[in-house]
Amino acid sequence: MAETHSDHEHIGIPGYLAVFAILIVGTWITYVVAFWDLDSVFPGANTLLALAIAFTKMTVVMLYFMHVRWSKELVWLSAVASFFWLLIMFAFTMQDYFTRVSGVFSS
């Protein structure tokens, strides 16, 4: 008999609580580092760090809360494809911002 999705026990209540704790801690770290002046290291460092934390939180939500970790290859493909599309949106938007004549719409 083929293995089904429900055959897995996943990570149980303690595991889900651990993931929840990771999300809360991630949110707290995001709040704290927002007060650090990381932009003095390089421009945009604050934003980059906030996005990195958000990406980590999103990854654990997808893997554990949404059960992607135990899902079939097609679900993995769908998840990866959505990130690829996100990459398209960012890359093609940024090609405008990185090559735009400076001063346009600057406040």
Partner: peptide
């Protein structure tokens, strides 16, 4: 279809380079 949206924005102030690609 997901790679061409900038053709709605050729005269919006979008960069000329982006306009060429789109």
């Amino acid at each position: 279809g997901f790679l061409v949206w900038g053709h709605h924005m050729f005269v919006s102030g979008q960069s000329i380079y982006a306009g060429l690609v789109f």
